[in-house]
Design a protein around this nucleic acid. Sequence first.
DNA 1: ATTGTGACATACG
DNA 2: CCGTATGCCACAA
Length: 110
Amino acid sequence: MSYHEKVFSVTKKIPRGRVTNYGAIADFLALGSARMVGWALNQSHFREDIPAHRVVNSKGELSGRLQFTTPTLMQELLEKEGVEIVKDKVKNFKEHFWHPGDHLDQTLYE
DNA sequence: ATTGTGACATACG
DNA sequence: CCGTATGCCACAA
């Protein structure tokens, strides 16, 4: 299993309406670093089933939006899931943040 | 082997 | 807020 496939499998588990960042995934895998995740995710747009739009940088910015078929697609997908985007950044980033490995959706019980 | 290039993160000034 | 520096490591040339 190649590195990016591992990143993909983690990314695929990101719950709908939640987001995470590159460092968190790298940390969870305990392999490589955030750069590796960025590199891996860069390859992800070749795959259909990878919700790469749920992965943003540490500031909550949609840094990878330019890799999508259209620069606005990433934002549109997130908003469709209930994640508000303001100026290419996730609003209430902390609230929507998802820690890899957290299979329990905490906001589900609020 | 060496160099350049990343959808990054963190720290510092 | 911005620019720099550094750590990180896969991959192509």
